[in-house]
Structures are given as C-alpha cells and as structure tokens.
Amino acid sequence: MKDSLMKRAGCGVRHEELFAGKGGKMGKRHKIAGTVKKYTVTMAVAGLGISFLLPILILLSGSLADALEWQGRAEALALDTEGYVDWKWIPDYPTLEQYKRLLFYSPAFLKLFWNSVRMAGMILAGQLLVGIPGAWALASFRFKGRGALFTGYVILMLLPFQVTMLSRYLVVRQLGLLDTAGAVTLPAVFSTFPVFLVYRSFRSIPPELPEAARIDGAGEWRIFVRIGIPLARGGILAAMVLDFLESWNMVEEPLAFLKDKSLWPLSLYLPEIGLSQAGFSCAASLVTICMSWFVFRIFSDSLEKGIINSGL
C-alpha cells in the first residue's frame, strides 16, 4: 500500500530511499534533527512543569520533616539574618508526626475546613439558584435595558473587592449579618462572574431550539430546565468549578466581615500558623490543596469545554 501510494505520488525510488532511511544522508539528518527538536521541546516543557510543581514538592518535603529539622533549615528566616535556607528534598529524619498532629490533634483546622466546605457549598447552591436563571434570562429574553444591564454586570465583575468592600460592609451591617456566615455567602451568591460565564454558554445555544420548544408548547421554565441547562452544562460546570476555587481560597471577605474566628474559613487559618510550626503548616497546606485538586480532577473536562465555549 505504501509503495503504490508513493508511486502514484510520483515519488521515485530515490525519495523512497531517502524517507525509508535506506542509506540516505539527508533522511538521517532530518530524522536526527526532528528527534533532537522533539526531546528539546519535551525537556523544556517538562522543566517548566517541574518548576510549576516545585511549591507542591516543597510542601510535601517540608511536611515530612519534624520541628527540630525545621529549626535547622529555617534558621535564616527565623533570625531574620542574611543567609540561605538549608533545604533538603528528602528529610534526614522523615516523620508523619505533622499529619498525625493535623488530623487528630488540631480541632481548629478541621472545624475551619468544614466551615470552608459549608461556605463553598452554600455559595455554589445559591449561585445555582440565582445566577444560572439570571444568566438564562439575560441570554434568552429581549427586554429594554438588557444591554445596559449586562454591561453593568461586566463592570461589576471587573471591579476588585477593595473597591466594593465598603458598600458591601454597609449593606451587610444594615441587614444585621455582620459577623455571621451570611456576610460572606450572601454577596458571593449574587456574584456576577458566573452569570457572565454561563451567559456565554447559553448564548451559544441555537435560538431555534428554544423557539421550537415554544412552538411545541413548552413553558419557559421547561425550556430552561430541559434545554438550556443540559446544553450549557459545560459552562455551568466550569462556572461552578471556578467559583468553588474562588470561594475555597477567599481571604478578604471573611477577614473584613467576620470578627468571630470560629466562623473563619480555612484560608484564614493557614496564615495564623507561625514559623515555629512550619512543618505543620506544610501539612495543612497540602490537605487544603487536596480539595481543589479533587474538584479540578473530577471536572477538568467540563472546565476546559466551558472556558472554550465562554470565549474566555
């Protein structure tokens, strides 16, 4: 088959010899160059990948070292002198003591972990109830001021938290929600970013589909639930994943609105751990990262598709 193809293409023996590598010099050079290029690119990309993984590797290595070993390593940091941290990738005296302490003797860490899970869950649930229908309304319905409203959404989405913090604080205080979980979850439920993301997914649905459904007698709710959500599932999941990552790692909102430390999320607990407990801090950080990793691993395909569809 290959021979006949080569003949029809007009390639002679000479070409064949070259590309079959039967003693042709030019062919060999090309092959070597291609291989070198391939390996060079692979090494460069691998190197970049490893450098991205470095912080995780440092956390893993640090979490297996005990307090004494950390004392020797981080002396330069602790004494605030000129010097270097003496780092070893494999500790001299590896131990699981930090994990044992974290998982069985740190009720504060676990309590705040579940605080974060609860907060993230409430925010996602709220956004599903509020943001998704909102995005559908913006995408499907034609009403006066729709463009301006959407522009307003985009502007709000672009504003950093520091700009809207004061107004949020005043509203939350007026509602009597200050120093409660609602002070953090309620503003996040009405966040504009997921609306924007899911709007793009809803807009990618051909308008003929809902039109056809209307003709068939389907109500708006039915169209939304039976057509809109399934077709924009990727975008919805992408929005949920990104929102989860944002709410899992949020720092400013709880710091501004929550005085009671027992309501804090996990992201505020980690900075409270001092240098004297650096190993413990590494272990805590790794466990914290696990949640994000699991969510990303489960929904990575949807996230990819959703981002593509949304045009971000």
Binding site: F104, Y105, P107, L110, K111, V117, F294, V295, I298
Partner: peptide
C-alpha cells in the same frame, strides 16, 4: 475513581474530625 476518592477523602476527614473532637 476521582469521585470515589473525593468521597473517601471527605469521609476520612469527617472521621478525623470526630476523633479530634473526642481527644480534645
């Protein structure tokens, strides 16, 4: 598998929470 692993992870942390509370 990832979902099952995630569920196990959360279940393990729930058990650890209970044990930690008891010890505390």
């Amino acid at each position: 598998r990832a979902l099952v692993g995630f569920g196990c992870f959360l279940a393990f942390l729930a058990v650890c929470t209970l044990i930690t509370k008891i010890i505390y």
